[in-house]
Computed example of a mutant assay.
Amino acid sequence: MSGTRILCCHVTTATLSFAVLYLIGNVLKLVNIILMVSLDKEAFSVTYHEAKDTRGQRVFDISTNILMLVLMSISAVLVLFSKRKGPMFVLPFVLMMFVELSLSFLYLFDGAWGLPGTPNYRDMLQFVKSVRRVDSLNEEEIGHFTMSYSVLYMLFVLLKVYVLHVSMRCFYFLKAESMAAVSVDTGNTVTVKLPSYDEALKMRAEDIPPSYHEA
């Protein structure tokens, strides 16, 4: 992981910025979930099916989504202290970004792996229908929508890859900086006082090594 700058800012500054944005986004998602639960809305439906989830499935989805958002929020908060506390405070954010990226790829094959806040094909399609005030779209409109959704979702995934890359570079930079600081603080040098010619002859005769001390 070479280089300490990304685009126009330092990797630590970029990681802090991403962590703040993720923290704000996660808090908003948590508030949205809590409001949906409190209003008793059927927000978690089985993707690509008309039938709703059972009560147990809905509770499980809500619980796992809240847990994921809480863990992501905690990891984002830890990044804010990484400059003073060291690279280990960035590592949870890196791990959570890796998990989120993995789930985003799995979502392409099965909608059940979708994270809270992940753009859902069915929900986006319903949104487009409501905006256009139509009950259904024709084949050409469906094709355009599918292509647009695919491009936007891939950009969404690439953004996650970029954030993961930046956070890893920040981790390695802070790790190298911490190791350099430790080596400077604890580094000892050993100096040897060379004897004179007469002392060397005397020590050679007595087999006494030269004296040394730590500076």
Rank of each mutant, 00 (worst) to 15 (best):
P210E: 03
T4N: 11
C8P: 02
H49M: 01
S196P: 05
L39P: 02
F171A: 06
T47R: 11
R84I: 07
L39N: 03
A76T: 10
M179P: 02
A181E: 15
F18V: 00
V131H: 07
G187W: 10
V134Q: 03
L30D: 01
D123C: 10
V128P: 02
L78G: 06
F105Q: 07
L201F: 08
L115S: 13
R204L: 13
A112T: 09
Y149L: 11
L69T: 15
R132Q: 10
E50Y: 15
L35F: 12
D135H: 07
E139N: 02
F173T: 05
V20Y: 09
V190N: 11
G56F: 14
S17I: 02
I208Q: 00
C170T: 05
V37R: 01
G117T: 15
L78T: 04
G114L: 02
L137W: 08
D207C: 14
T64L: 15
K129D: 04
Y22G: 08
D185T: 14
L115T: 15
A43W: 00
M72H: 09
N138A: 06
A200H: 01
T47A: 08
I34Y: 14
M147E: 00
Y121L: 11
G143N: 05
M147S: 09
T54I: 01
T54C: 10
V151R: 13
V70T: 13
L7R: 12
M36C: 05
A205H: 00
G117N: 10
L125W: 08
R5M: 11
V46Q: 03
T13L: 01
E214T: 14
D207M: 07
S183R: 12
V99D: 01
V70C: 08
M124A: 08
V90D: 02
S148V: 03
A19T: 06
Y153I: 11
F93T: 01
K129F: 01
T186C: 15
S75T: 03
T47Q: 06
F18K: 04
R84E: 00
V151W: 15
L155H: 13
V99Y: 10
T191D: 13
I66M: 11
T64V: 10
K41G: 07
T189A: 14
V31S: 05
V46S: 04
I208E: 02
E177T: 10
L164W: 10
L194K: 01
K175V: 00
S178Y: 10
F156D: 03
T191N: 12
V151P: 04
A215T: 15
A181V: 12
G117P: 11
I34H: 04
G117F: 06
K129V: 02
A181P: 07
H144M: 05
A200I: 04
I34A: 07
K160D: 04
D207I: 08
L7S: 13
L174N: 06
G56N: 12
I66G: 10
F171C: 06
R55Y: 13
D110H: 01
T12Y: 14
G3W: 06
L30A: 07
L101C: 12
D207V: 10
F171S: 07
V70M: 15
S178M: 13
N120P: 05
C9Y: 14
V131M: 07
M168Q: 05
T146V: 11
F145G: 15
E100Q: 11
D61C: 02
E42P: 01
G187A: 14
H10Y: 06
V128S: 10
I34T: 02
